[in-house]
Each structure stands twice: as C-alpha cells, then as structure tokens.
C-alpha cells in the first residue's frame, strides 16, 4: 500500500476516538504507523500492525511499534478468534484483492471492526464519470486510473450493504466532507452523495 501523507489522513484522529482506551488493536495496512502511534500515545492501546511495504514496516519498528510485513488478503487467517478488541482497516479496503474475505477475517479476529474508505458515490466523482466521461480524480483519490492501487472502490451504500451481507452491524458511521463530520449509523442518499470519506465502527450481529 502506498505510504500516506498525514495531511490527507483526517480519518485517523476520528478512528482513534472510536477506540476504547487500553484495548488491543490490530491496524491492517498501518503504513508508517501514524495511527498506531496516536493510539499508543493518546489511548494507551496495545497496538499491532500489518503492513505490505517493507519500508513501512521497518519505519514502524524503528519507531518502536510492533509491526509485521504482511498482506491483508493473506495473513489475517493466522490470527486466533477474538485476538483483538479492534481490527482497523484505514483506507486500505479498496486496495485489497478480496474485500469481502478480508472483512470476514476481521470480523472473526476482532470484537469490533473499524473501516475507513474514500466514498466513490461522492457527487464530484459522479460528475466526472457521468458528465465528463472520465475516470475520477479527486483529493482523496488522486491517482490516475492506470496508476492506482485502488482496485475495489465502493460507495457508502455499497459498503453498508456488504456489511449487512456479512452480519456486521453498524455501531457508528461518520461521514466526512470538507472539514465536517456527520454521524450517520444508517447513511442515506445525501450521505452517499456528500461524504468524501466514511469511517464505520462495526460489530458482529
């Protein structure tokens, strides 16, 4: 997964607030460990990370974080059931090969699941594709179509429907647009149109 500049990661502080203090957390696709560091410093969390890029992993370990080189699609199967209080996938699900299987594994190994992703249903994206007839490029999805790691983009609506299929209950939904955050545990038409990014806290139904 591409390394993520912090200025583009307002979802991280929101995620950190969803996590109970002193809990056990697995951050899947943890990059250079920005979220894990926030969680360790502010929430006293026992955090672990999985990161695909070796540069990211080495940077994390150098910062004193417990991180392994691994792949969301492959390596979650290793962990035992209920190994963590929270399993977090921040802006990574769209880059996995099999998002459904990844979510199923997260549901198995974590009592809670937190997922953040760029909303492909945002109006700007719809305009670019629908009226201009071009693959969208936005602040949250800045790569060219031929140069993007994002192979499984979805809308807020798509995601909620997948959660329903996987027996995952939405405990909290946070819709991000501009500097605003709107709570929506059952997001509707306007959320799907105006959220640039979404953060969901889920648990087994």
């Amino acid at each position: 997964m591409a390394l993520r500049p912090l200025d583009n990661r307002r979802d991280l502080s929101l995620i950190a607030e969803l996590v109970e203090p002193s809990s056990r957390v697995l951050d899947v696709g943890c990059g250079e460990g920005e979220l894990l560091e926030i969680l360790a410093n502010k929430r006293n969390v026992d955090g672990r990370g999985v990161e695909l890029s070796q540069e990211g992993v080495n940077a994390c370990v150098t910062r004193g974080l417990s991180v392994i080189q691994g792949d969301a699609d492959q390596d979650l199967a290793d962990y035992p059931e209920d190994a963590f209080d929270y399993v977090i996938l921040s802006k990574t699900i769209q880059a996995t090969r099999n998002p459904g299987a990844v979510l199923r594994q997260m549901r198995r190994i974590g009592r809670h699941v937190i997922v953040s992703f760029p909303n492909f249903g945002h109006w700007k994206i719809r305009v670019q594709l629908g009226l201009q007839g071009r693959m969208p490029e936005t602040d949250t999805l800045a790569d060219k179509w031929y140069d993007t790691p994002n192979i499984h983009l979805c809308t807020v609506k798509d995601f909620v429907s997948l959660c329903d299929e996987l027996d995952l209950e939405v405990v909290q939904g946070l819709m991000l647009s501009g500097g605003n955050v709107r709570q929506a545990s059952s997001p509707g038409f306007f959320d799907n149109l105006f959220a640039e990014e979404a953060v969901f806290l889920l648990k087994r139904r």
């Binding site: 026992d46 672990r48 992993v57 035992p80």
Partner: peptide, 18 residues
C-alpha cells in the same frame, strides 16, 4: 515463526532487511 506467533496473538515485529 511470525505466522506461529501471530496464531497465538503474540507481540511480534518482523522486518526483512534489504
């Protein structure tokens, strides 16, 4: 070794040095 440690949810870091 890392897989086995993950299977018991151990606190493990793994680095592969280039």
């Amino acid at each position: 070794i890392v897989h086995a440690l993950n299977a018991v949810a151990a606190n493990v870091s793994f680095v592969e040095i280039n």
